[in-house]
Design a protein around this nucleic acid. Structure first.
Length: 372
RNA sequence: GGAGGGAUAGCGAAGUGGUCAAACGCGGCAGACUGUAAAUCUGUUCCUUCGGGUUCUAUGGUUCAAAUCCAUAUCCCUCCA
């Protein structure tokens, strides 16, 4: 069972320091959660996930429902046993797939009709079904089934979508019986403050165990994203987890921690890794670039990850160029460790009430002196 | 010794008179990626002062026009002796 305790709020901002306890394990927030859509953080073993000091990982209802099937996972004894991970697991509801598979969707009051991406079968995912699947999967944190609205979207569309998302949240909560599971509601509302406020307040009335902020990282500019987050956290209770869904650009993490977000997830560290990119204190680098061919230094001298302790840029570049999977694995380890370490630094800054100074220094390092 | 087939950009390979600086793939160079239909996708890849210039093994020829037709040379492959 995941339990959250707010430890402090930073003196000058809304940044929060918190503690999650889970089966005798303790994790601090703000935290970054690596994504393991198909019950695996792509290329990493559970031991490696722990070695980079990641805590919660995220898996996906839609994908596991289709393959291998939530009943199979249940038979295996739940996700933790099935994938051999004893840390906390959060499952997304399938709501994002409504958005990303938009060409083949049909949203009705009942739920969303899909043509699945594996064999084209027609499927119906409903709020009740999503909760049931997540109960079968046996994740620790369950998401309500929502509609992730794209950007831009008209006020009228967002309004009716938010209202439906709220009805879906209620329906899901009504059937939720998860043992040792907690359930989050998802704040939508696009860029419109009154709709974000309305959505948040209605969800809070339903008393969820935590709250997600959705509808971000769908192509909006950074300023808009930060506003969406402000308009959401402002109306959420202090004592519950706030989870910003899908955001993982380092600067966005820093900015949104300042706006009161506790946990983040993003596919970017693992996807960037598979595409040959490494996150570093001094910005993102592309190891495919010719200039790294004979660079026999680690990705980052100050990084304590397995890749940086043992391998050079030139070697990892070679692996990526040769399409050897070990390269993607080393970069995934590094990129996740980079984000987890970023969170460690942010927590330290919150403890010292110096997060604004930290942000300024972060920007100078990451983007160089002439940023903005 | 005889008979046939071939040589196209870094590599492989289309093209067989004009619409060809030459399809496509690989390789190279760069870019994108945000609750993962993503180990994917996009751009670019003879030279250029952006006007143009020089290409399809080499040389010569036919033609208004040649990677494409003809002759010779060089190299490679297959089959028969």
């Amino acid at each position: 069972m995941v339990e959250f305790k707010l430890l402090k709020t930073e003196k000058n901002t809304k940044a929060r320091l918190g503690k999650i306890t889970y089966n005798g394990q303790e994790y601090e927030t703000p935290m970054f959660m690596p994504v393991g859509t198909q019950a695996t953080v792509k290329t990493l073993s559970p031991e490696e996930i722990k070695e980079v000091k990641a805590g919660i990982i995220l898996a996906n209802t839609y994908h596991l429902w289709l393959r291998p099937g939530d009943e199979v996972v249940k038979l295996a004894g739940g996700l933790h046993k099935f994938m051999n991970y004893d840390g906390p697991i959060l499952t997304d509801s399938g709501g994002f797939q409504v958005f990303s598979l938009a060409k083949r969707k049909d949203i009705t009051e009942e739920g969303v009709h899909f043509k699945n991406h594996i064999n084209g079968d027609k499927l119906l995912l409903t709020p009740e079904k999503s909760i049931k699947i997540q109960e079968n999967l046996g994740s620790d944190i369950v998401m309500s089934f929502d509609e992730c609205i794209g950007y831009p979207a008209s006020y009228d569309y967002v309004k009716q979508s938010v209202e439906r998302t709220l009805r879906w949240a209620k329906r899901g909560k009504d059937v939720f019986t998860g043992q040792n599971q907690i359930l989050f509601g998802i704040v939508q509302g696009g860029e419109y403050e009154d709709l974000r406020k309305f959505c948040a307040e209605e969800l809070v009335k339903m008393n969820f165990d935590g709250y997600s902020i959705g509808g971000t990282s769908v192509g909006e500019d950074k300023k808009t994203q930060y506003k969406m987050v402000e308009y959401s956290t402002k109306y959420l209770p202090e004592d519950k987890i706030r989870y910003l869904m899908g955001v993982g650009d380092p600067i966005d993490i820093v900015e949104n921690v300042i706006r009161g977000v506790d946990i983040f997830d993003c596919v970017s560290p693992t996807r960037l890794a598979r595409h040959g990119h490494a996150l570093t204190k001094y910005g993102k680098i592309n190891l495919k670039n010719a200039k790294y061919k004979t660079d026999f230094t680690p990705i980052s001298a100050e990084c304590d990850c397995y890749a940086c302790k043992n391998y050079t840029k030139a070697y990892i570049k070679h692996l990526i160029n040769a399409e050897e999977t070990f390269g993607a694995r080393l970069l995934s380890i590094h990129n996740i460790r980079y984000l987890v370490h970023l969170m460690e630094e942010l927590r330290e800054a919150i403890k010292n009430d110096r997060i604004l100074e930290y942000k300024d220094q972060f920007i100078k390092d990451y983007y160089g002196e002439d940023y903005k």
